[in-house]
Design a protein around this nucleic acid. Sequence first.
DNA 1: AAGACACGCAACCGCAAACAA
DNA 2: ATTGTTTGCGGTTGCGTGTCT
Length: 252
Amino acid sequence: MARKPIHAGVGDEGEANKERKGLWSPEEDERLFTQITYHGVSTWSSVAQLAGKILNFELVTDFWLRRSGKSCRLRWMNYLRPDLKKEPISKREEETIISLQRSLGNRWSAIAARMPGRTDNEIKNYWNSRIRKRRNAAGNKASRDGDSSTEPAPAEEDPTDAAPAPIPSRFPVFGCQLLDGAGGGISFAGSGSGESIQSTITQQNASDESEAEASGGGQSNMLHFLSFFDQDYYPADLLVDVPGAMDAWEII
DNA sequence: AAGACACGCAACCGCAAACAA
DNA sequence: ATTGTTTGCGGTTGCGTGTCT
């Protein structure tokens, strides 16, 4: 199987109607994240189409995310989802994986379902790269020693015990700026773990609701602007206008 | 310093199940 | 009941990076 090694850019006119493959660029991540955060998922194929660039109150459809729905789903599930744990798998989790694999077999999605914040892909990769190897090594050693047992070897030192969990280098770092129509607003920046983003938005939402109630309790006409941008790639003053952004509050 | 090698992980593919028309 | 579409899953590939020689 041949996979293109390069970042799949966005807005590449030469490849205008081709479906993109390969690594996701931060810009694509931003669009997908924003799309799903605002509008949720009806079907994954529609997510890919709707995640166009939103600019100056217009949906610029020639910047559609040219990804398959399948690819969007995979990216969201394995990487962008806010509830994902970003720290390395701990010793305790490794024991859980071993135990669940023993009872469930290679049903990685079933195993992942029992491990909040972990994805099937992550668990599968972990199993294939470390545990299976360790078991094989233990098996080989046992056979050399005349012992046919293939029980997993006890885990060696756990790197996660020693060092604080690093943020994966490839994970996009999002910033967010929220402004109201009167020019006031808040902004924050953080890693794309999503938790910080979500909690901040939720807090703002709560205060927003109370403000709305205080001013009559009806639908506020106040304009809100919300943007997620990758601080490594975009200038901090990039601002994306989101028509109907108030709807997004209902999602979170 | 540079090439070889090993490893981790993101993302692809094919297939099957679920669902809609 | 049939057909087409979408989603979800597991296996696999190959790039990027760190380590070794």
